[in-house]
């Protein structure tokens, strides 16, 4: 037992869990983000806009806790990575957090005052509050894959503009499309009538763009990042990106047959696959430096003590499955079809 839980093994386990937590966050909050991004495109009138809000309705808050957990786990398991990553990405991270604040309050505030201008203002906030996080998460993760200009002391030497390189922007656009597609599928599952049809159509229209962007991103990753090195070393890992591309290719079949739950599940698998593809490629670095390999923050240099990693592992192994179980139950309980009558109820957004 003590061999299995050696400090080195714990670091690897936590690196994997770290990637997994981010991918769960992307899967869950991804559809909320996608819904908000699609809001101005799919919803024609106030009822349809409210349906879009209510499709995320009971879930966005619980989904956002996965972000808090991913952040908390970075802090607990890899304090130095947490310190360097978030101070280096100072501006984009704060913009992301402010955007998420506006996203959250737009749910709560929008329907509280009966005024067109009021609702329109919060709709705008809702769009940017979802679109910006999608974009910024993409830019941030792409830059992490590529490496960011940090020196040996962990000090960030670039500016916010140095993150907006070609690969970073491609990552941002990629994430926006991934989440929009994911959100469209969720909307199709939950909405009825004209909005349901529009959501399905949107998903079908987004799919080719998603496919092109996926292949482009994988190609750019080859050009701009060292991510594939790990895959040459351990070819078995290639199953992860391979699985992601396979489920993506299966999407038109699901969409055509109207198997929306399958399509949504495939989209979730795709998101996990893409995230883990990047994370596995980064190993053992958590924050790779583009200045010198020696300045990279690695799993070993960032990890907490063996005791903390062990305690946290026990906590995670007990709590996370329980959380997943009750969240899954809540999803099954509250994923009802959003019909126009629901909007008249007091608890609807």
């Amino acid at each position: 037992m003590s061999d299995i839980l050696s400090h080195e093994n714990l670091q690897i386990i936590w690196f994997f869990l770290w990637g997994l937590l981010w991918s769960i966050y992307f899967v869950l909050d991804g559809f909320d983000i996608g819904l908000g991004t699609l809001l101005p495109l799919v919803a024609a009138d106030d009822d349809e806009r409210r349906m879009v809000y209510n499709a995320a309705g009971p879930f966005w808050d619980g989904n956002e806790v996965w972000l808090i957990t991913a952040g908390g786990v970075t802090f607990a398991a890899f304090p130095k990575a947490y310190a360097v990553m978030f101070s280096a990405l100072y501006a984009p991270l704060l913009i992301l957090l402010f955007a998420l604040i506006f996203r959250a309050v737009s749910f709560e505030f929008r329907n509280k005052i009966d005024s067109r201008g009021w609702r329109k203002a919060w709709d705008t906030c809702h769009f940017f509050g979802n679109f910006l996080p999608a974009l910024l998460l993409g830019v941030a993760f792409a830059n992490l894959f590529k490496g960011i200009p940090i020196d040996g002391r962990g000090i960030y030497l670039g500016s916010i503009l140095s993150l907006l390189n070609l690969y970073g922007i491609a990552g941002g656009v990629f994430f926006v499309i991934v989440f929009a597609f994911h959100g469209a599928l969720w909307l199709a599952i939950r909405a009825e009538g004209a909005l349901h049809d529009k959501a399905r159509k949107t998903a079908s229209m987004l799919w080719p763009a998603l496919l092109v962007m996926t292949l482009l991103f994988l190609a750019l990753t080859w050009v701009y990042t060292p991510l594939y090195n790990n895959y040459f070393k351990t070819p078995a890992l290639l199953t992860v990106p391979f699985l992601a591309v396979t489920v993506l290719l299966a999407q038109p079949f699901c969409l055509k047959k109207g198997r929306l739950v399958s399509a949504f599940t495939a989209s979730a698998v795709f998101i996990v696959g893409v995230t883990l593809f990047g994370v596995f490629g980064m190993f053992p670095a958590l924050v790779p430096s583009s200045i010198s390999a020696a300045a990279s923050i690695t799993v070993a240099s960032a990890a907490s003590s063996q005791v903390t990693l062990t305690i946290m592992l026990v906590v995670a192994l007990i709590c996370v499955p329980v959380v997943i179980a009750y969240q899954a139950w809540v999803y099954s309980l509250l994923s009802f079809k959003i019909i126009p009558e629901y909007l008249a109820s007091e608890e609807a957004y």
Binding site: K80, S305, L334
Partner: peptide, 29 residues
């Protein structure tokens, strides 16, 4: 953060997994 993550960070992470999920999920229920 780097100095205290081992202790302080783990308490925050435990807070999220043990308590905050429960609160945010069940308020929706």
């Amino acid at each position: 953060s780097e100095y205290v993550g081992d202790i302080f960070g783990s308490l925050l992470a435990i807070e999220a997994t043990l308590a905050f999920f429960l609160e945010s999920t069940f308020i929706a229920v």
